[in-house]
Each structure stands twice: as C-alpha cells, then as structure tokens.
Design a protein around this nucleic acid. Structure first.
Length: 626
RNA sequence: GACCCCAUAGCUCAGCUGGAUAGAGCAACUGCCUUCUAAGCAGUAGGUCACAGGUUCGAAUCCUGUUGGGGUCGCCA
C-alpha cells in the first residue's frame, strides 16, 4: 500500500467516526508555498460538522493526531487542512522501493488486450501523422503491459482498393520497369512516387474538363453520369454561401475525375484484381512487397513492432455472415435495392449502410468481420483501435453495431482517438505534397542529435558504433517525447522550420538526467550500501523528490485508464526536475557522511529505475551515458 | 443544415473527477562550471484562461448561449 492510500484510509475512518461520513476523501498534493505533504479540503464536510470550515479542519486535524496517525503535524488555512507526514514515512518508502526494478508496474490483471495501430495504406510512404499513430499505439501497448495486461499488437494493413491501383497503373504506364534495386529507392518511396505520378497525370488529364464542368459544360459517358452532373450543377448554381459553393465545386471535380480515362482504367484494374486476374495480382504482390520492405525498415528504425498482421485483402469479404445474422435478428434491415442498413436514430446517430446493394462490403462491414475474427483468434477481453479522430463517428457506429449483435466483447472495444498533426500551413495533405516524410524526419533528427552531441564535446571515449547507436536513440527519444507529451486527443502543431529541441521539457532532458545518475552509480564505491543508515532529516528537495517518486504507480494507472501516455511523459519531466534540484544542491559521491551518501545513492538508484521504466512505457530506451 | 472536438503567456504545451496567488518549456534578460555529466540549476519579465450569462462557499475546470478554428454526415478506406 502506498502512503497516500494509507493516509486516505485513515482520514476516512476519522471522518466516519466524527460525522458518519462514508465516502473516500479526496487528497491533494499540498502546494509548495504551504507547509505539508497532503491537503484535505474540508468544505464538503462543513454541513455534517455544523461548524465553520476552520473549526472543522481543526477538529479533523486533531482527531488524526490522536489516531496514532501517519502525520506528525497539521496546519489549517481557511478551509484547507494541510497534513505533514511523519518524516520516517518517506524513509520507509525509500528503503522498501529503492531497488525494486518493477516499481510502478501493476500486478497481473489476467486479461488480454489487443492494440491495433499503424494500419497504413500501401500506396505511399509513412509521414508524421503515421508517426503519431505509431508512437501512441506502441506506447499504449507498453502501458497496458506495465499495468499487468497481456498485450497483442496488431496491424491491419490496407493493401487493397483503388488507391493501390493508382500506383500500379502509373507504374505500368510510366514506370519503364523501375524497381527499388534499379533505382536505389526505398520500396515504399518508389511506390509513393508512382502514386504522385498518377495524381499529376490525372490532374493534367482532367484540368480542362474540370474548368469547363465548373462553367456548366460537361458530357458524361453515360446518361446516369450526366444526370448526376446536372444535379450537382444546378445545386451549385443555386448555392449562395461560400462554404457550400466550394464544397459543391469539389463534388463536381470529384465526379469529373472519377469519370476520367485514368480513373476508369483504375476501376477496371480493381475489378480485375477482385476477379483474380493473374497479371494484376502479380503486379500487386510485387509492388506491395516493395512497400512492406520499406515499411519494415521505417518501423524498425522507429522502434515499433507488431505481433500480428492482418491484411485487408484477406479480410475485406469478412463480416457478411454477421450482416446476415443481423438481418435475421432484425438488427439490420434491407432496402428494396438489396442494400442493408442499421437504424441508429434511437441512439442519436443516423441510418448507416452496412452492405451495398450488390452484396459487396463497405468499410464498416470489414470492421464488423475483423472484430469477430480478433475475438475468435485471440479471445481478447479488450480491443483498442488507435485511429485518428476523423473516424470518431465510424467507431461509435461500429461499437453500437457489435453491441446490438449481442457480442459480449463489444463492451471491451475502445477507440483510442487522437488528433491530427498540423503544420503551420495547416493540415498535412499528401495530394498537395505538404507532408513531413517519416524517413526524412528520422534522418534529420539523427543528424541533429549528432551535431548537438559533437558541439557539446561529449563524444570522447565512445566508439563510433556506440555513438551512432546513441544518436539514433537520442533522436528517437526527442521525437517520441515531443509527440507523446501532448494529450493524444488534442491536435498538435509541428513546425518543420524549428527543429525539435534537445533542451527543456524534452526526451533528451529526461535521458540526460538518467545518464547523469548512471554515471554517478558507475563511479560510486562498491561498498556504499554497507554504511549505517543516517538519522539526519531529509532536506526539502530530497523530500520533494521522494514525493514525486511515490506518484509513479498512480501516474501509470491513470495513464492506462485514460489511454494517455502524456501523463507518464509529464511525470517523467517532474521527476527529472526534482532529481536535478537535489543534484544541484547536494553531493552524492563527495558527501562526507557515509549514511547520507547511502541514502542519496538509494534515491539516485530509484530515480534512475523509475526514469527507465517510465521511458520504456513511452517506447524509449534509456541511455547509459550521453 | 445536423452532430462531434477544440480555444490557457509572443510560440509549443500542462493544469486529473470544481479548491488556496493559473504552471512548465522555448524565445528575451540576470546569475551559477579548477568540485559527482551546465543537454543542468537558480532568478527576472510575460495572463481579462476566446466572449457573455448561469450553478456554487469556491469555476480555466460544470451548464447554456455567442464567436473563431477543425472534423464527420449511405457506397475512399
């Protein structure tokens, strides 16, 4: 039991005997400008005590002193009861945990959790948006592991669909047999290049037609297309608001694009793919192979991994059985054209298509199927989807569907929704080329780590090999920490013009604090732990450090409950700062009193362990020296 | 049009289920390395918590409205 919960229980019992109060009281950390460790706000109890806030606080404080308490004194300021813990509570805590390598880890929950993340399209290389997803997904996995869950990291690769056909078609027409080995390009970048080639060719091919279509002149290939165009056009003519107009214009552009020769060829290719055309399948396998090689390299460098891969080419027909089941159960209903729907208006949502009129799957059909598949394959108790917040609605609908289909595991499904990474110019858009490429960024960060280290002259005594490994780790910790310290739910800004810092509230700062401690421990005399314990009181900064350390298990638990690695990141900053304050104020190895040295080294050891464990939760390896 | 999310220092972000004088980092300015790693520490300056109401002993936090930004809304996944 930790100190805070012990104290909380004691207060609860005092409140119960004084006022018959039943609930667990809420304890705050005492603000640094007041004396005390924990603070109880007494306003909630004044009704029961029928006394002023001050008198109530006095009464509770006195009762706590009498109950053989953990506290040594208290003070009352207005309605705030500040409690000072007996100093030996902190020493006991330190003696118990200083060398506990598992400190902060939860006991086994005997539950299995699947974390699905990454889930890329195979038509272009990874960018910064993917990196936020990957870092979050990997970190959440480590967080759940640390909290005692068994974790399966899954990646559902989006390897089929019209977007792949674009790269394939462009390669066929313009590629001239280019391969990763012939060009020296990373496979995913090569395929991405042809995706861009396709988009450019498409733009060229459709530019004039679009211009004319936006003036009311367009000839569709079929009456149906022509009718859709005419409808869109008359809407556009009637529209008044700017927003609406630009949206309707986009609709028309989209329509014209989809009817272009290139897009029609693409759709033919998709149909050929679905029909199992050997030539198309061969090309698809070849180009996907290039992409996987490229992705694997990037993931490896990013330090993320997966236990299980799903491929949409395998799963895209799944879910139809469940659609059938839903029809029989009356959860879904069919319209005249044979399309299948669910009505979620009673849940404040809308009607939603779950299967097309021609019997083919839509996105959500697959997700229904894969949810079932995950459960059958792994028996997961919880299933977490790390997916951007633009799909909030989609997952609301999916979870409701699974619930209405009577799936017991529906309650364990969770959408770990996160915000976009914005650039100063706004949202990243691959079509407009405003993306920050993952491989480029990684390399820039590694270069920056090398330059910083060299500028500080800290390369002495390290082999080139070790230095290279150090730069990789430092670069990654800067990047991961930069991304993970922000609340996942919020959108965040990345400014490529300003490089990510290595100073201040950063990954390297935490690393530095860790490396500094490791350095102390390496040079400490081997017999330091044999000295007699000191009886001297802890200094203010030392007590502050122990208070921060004591918060680690709670931070992990809370981060897990809130699906937020950011809480761990913020904790690590607090811890590193608290330690650096002690470091600045006291000596460790030069401390003449052997007992004091022992106590400080215990604190150093525990801080290093905790920093390392916390970094591990963020998916960051702690460095021994830097 | 409907629904969802967001708005805190010049910039990037904390601020947990309502609690004391709203906190960090960056940028600016001051100090601290012949002593355990200065990628550090200490300090100065910087705020109408978008705006207006409401609930409460107490609101950045909860509720309502307004403004601004982003997202989603039957066949892209």
């Amino acid at each position: 039991m930790n100190i805070e919960s012990a104290l909380s229980l004691e207060i609860q019992s005092v409140l119960n005997s004084l006022y018959g109060w039943e609930q667990a009281p809420k304890l705050d950390q005492t603000r640094p400008e007041f004396e005390g460790d924990f603070t109880l706000v007494v306003f909630p109890f004044v009704r029961a005590s029928r006394k002023s806030p001050e008198a109530t606080a006095e009464e509770i404080g006195a009762a706590l002193m009498n109950s053989g308490s953990l506290i040594s004194s208290y003070n009352v300021i207005k309605g705030f009861l500040n409690l000072v813990l007996k100093a030996d509570n902190w020493s006991i805590f330190l003696d118990r945990e200083w060398n506990n390598l598992q400190f902060g880890h939860g006991s086994s929950k005997d539950q299995k959790v699947m974390v699905e993340y990454a889930s890329p399209n195979t038509n272009k290389p990874l960018h910064l948006g993917h990196m936020r997803n990957n870092f979050l997904g990997y970190s959440l996995s480590q967080l759940f592991k640390a909290s005692g869950y068994e974790v399966v990291m899954a990646n559902l690769i989006n390897d089929r669909g019209i977007h792949i056909c674009k790269s394939m078609l462009a390669w066929q027409r313009f590629g001239d047999g280019e391969t990763p080995s012939s060009s020296g390009m990373k496979g995913d970048h090569l395929v991405g290049k042809y995706y861009v080639v396709f988009e450019n060719a498409l733009r060229e091919q459709t530019q004039k037609t679009i211009e004319l279509a936006l003036q009311g002149q367009y000839n569709g290939h079929s009456p149906a297309v022509q009718e859709r165009y005419q409808q869109a056009w008359s809407k556009l003519e009637a529209a008044k608001e700017d927003k609406q107009i630009s949206k309707l214009k986009d609709d028309i552009k989209e329509l014209v694009r989809n009817q272009s020769e290139l897009m029609l060829a693409c759709q033919d290719m998709l149909r050929a793919w679905e029909a199992g055309d050997p030539e198309v399948l061969h090309l698809w396998k070849t180009m996907n192979g290039w992409v996987y090689e490229g992705f694997d390299a990037t993931w490896k460098r990013m330090g993320v991994s997966f236990d299980k891969f799903y491929y949409e080419s395998d799963t895209y027909t799944l879910g139809k059985d469940l659609v059938q089941e839903g029809l029989e159960k009356g959860v879904f209903y069919a319209k005249e054209d044979g399309s299948v729907w669910i009505d979620l208006r009673d849940a404040g949502l809308d009607e939603k298509l779950v299967q097309r009129g021609d019997g083919t799957s839509v996105y959500i059909t697959q997700d229904i199927g894969t949810a079932q598949l995950k459960y059958e394959e792994f028996g997961v108790d919880r299933s977490i989807y790390v997916v951007g917040n633009e799909q909030d609605y989609h997952f609301k609908v999916l979870f409701l569907i699974m619930e209405r289909l009577g799936r017991s595991y529906a309650s364990g499904m969770y959408h770990a929704s996160y915000g976009m990474v914005d650039l100063p110019s706004g949202k990243m858009k691959s079509r407009e080329g405003t993306v920050v490429d993952a491989d480029d960024l990684l390399q820039e960060m590694v270069d920056a780590a090398r330059e910083t280290t060299e500028a500080l002259g800290k390369t002495d005594g390290l082999a080139q090999e070790d230095l290279n490994a150090l730069y990789e780790t430092l670069a990654l910790s800067a990047l991961k920490f930069f991304i993970l310290k922000v609340d996942p739910k919020k959108r965040m800004l990345f400014n490529p013009a300003e490089s990510i810092d290595f100073q201040g509230d950063t990954g390297p700062f935490v690393q530095y604090s860790h490396a500094r401690i490791r350095s102390i421990l390496r040079t400490a005399p081997s017999s330091w732990n044999e000295a007699a314990d000191t009886q001297l009181a802890l200094s203010e900064t030392e007590t502050a450090l122990l208070k921060v350390l004591a918060q680690f298990p709670g931070a992990v638990t809370q981060a897990c409950e809130q699906y937020s690695p950011a809480l761990v990141a913020q904790f690590l900053l607090d811890l590193a700062k608290a330690f650096n304050r002690v470091y600045n104020e006291h000596s460790f190895l030069k401390e003449p009193d052997a007992g004091l040295m022992k106590r400080r080294l215990k604190m150093a050891q525990m801080t290093a362990n905790t920093l390392k464990n916390g970094l591990a939760v963020l998916g960051i390896d702690a460095v021994e020296r830097m």
